[in-house]
C-alpha cells in the first residue's frame, strides 16, 4: 500500500516535472532567436459588439530592445514597447512618448505584452503560474496570474506555437478576449537601424 502511494507520488512528480520541463524547453528555444519579424492578425471580442474587431499589421520583436507593433488596418497606429516606455505613432506620423507613465495599469499591460511576445522566462515565471502541454514542436502554455493586482483585470493568457510563438490569447476579467495570430516569421540577429530608431524615445 505504502509502496503504491510512493509510486503514485513519484509518478505525479514526474508528470509535473515533465510539464515544467516542457515549459522551460519551449521558453529556452524561443529565446534562441534574438529578433523575429512577423505579420499579425488581431481579433478583439468585446461584450457590446456582435462581431470581433479585426486588425492586422506587422511586428518586430527584439528580446532585449523591445517590441514594435505596427497596425496597418483598420487604422494606422504603431506602438513601440521599450523596457522603459511605450511610444505611440499615429497616422499623422507624430510620435508620442510617455504612455507608460499614464498610469500603472497601462504600464503593466505594456510590460506584459513585451514579456509575452519575447517569451521572457524570468518575467513570465514571476507573474504567472505556467503549465505546458503538447510537444516541443507543437506546444501550448497556460498562464495564470500569480499576483492579486494582475488577477484583478487579467483572467488567463494562453500561448501556443512551435518553433515560434504563433498565438497569444488574452482573457480579461471583464469577459473580453483578444487573440493575436502571428505568421510568416523571419528570424534575424539584429534590428534594422530604422527599427532601432522606432524604439528610441523622441
Amino acid at each position: 500500500m505504502r509502496l503504491a502511494l510512493l509510486a503514485l507520488a513519484a509518478a505525479c512528480g514526474a508528470v509535473a516535472a515533465d510539464g515544467d520541463e516542457l515549459a522551460a524547453r519551449v521558453l529556452a528555444r524561443l529565446a534562441e532567436v534574438p529578433v523575429v519579424r512577423a505579420e499579425f492578425v488581431q481579433e478583439r471580442f468585446v461584450a457590446s459588439m456582435p462581431a470581433p474587431v479585426l486588425s492586422r499589421g506587422r511586428m518586430t520583436m527584439s528580446r532585449h530592445e523591445g517590441l514594435i507593433w505596427r497596425i496597418v488596418e483598420p487604422v494606422k497606429l504603431t506602438l513601440a514597447f521599450t523596457p522603459a516606455d511605450i511610444i505611440e505613432t499615429g497616422a499623422d506620423g507624430v510620435r508620442r512618448a510617455g504612455a507608460a507613465r499614464r498610469g500603472r495599469a497601462q504600464a503593466e499591460m505594456g510590460r506584459l505584452i513585451r514579456s509575452l511576445t519575447a517569451a521572457d522566462a524570468a518575467e513570465l515565471r514571476a507573474d504567472f503560474e505556467l503549465r505546458a502541454e503538447g510537444s516541443l514542436e507543437r506546444w501550448k502554455l497556460h498562464l495564470l496570474p500569480r499576483r492579486r493586482e494582475m488577477a484583478r483585470f487579467l483572467a488567463a493568457v494562453e500561448l501556443a506555437g512551435g518553433r515560434y510563438l504563433e498565438t497569444i490569447e488574452i482573457h480579461t476579467t471583464s469577459g473580453e478576449r483578444t487573440v493575436m495570430r502571428m505568421s510568416k516569421f523571419v528570424a534575424a540577429t539584429a534590428l534594422e537601424p530604422a527599427e532601432r530608431d522606432e524604439l528610441t524615445p523622441p
Binding site: 483598420p74 497601462q106 499591460m109 471583464s174
Partner: peptide
C-alpha cells in the same frame, strides 16, 4: 472613427 479604432486595436486591451 480613428479615435474609436485606436482604443479597439491596441494590443494592450482596455484597462
Amino acid at each position: 472613427r480613428p479615435a474609436l479604432l485606436r482604443q479597439l486595436v491596441s494590443p494592450m486591451g482596455h484597462v
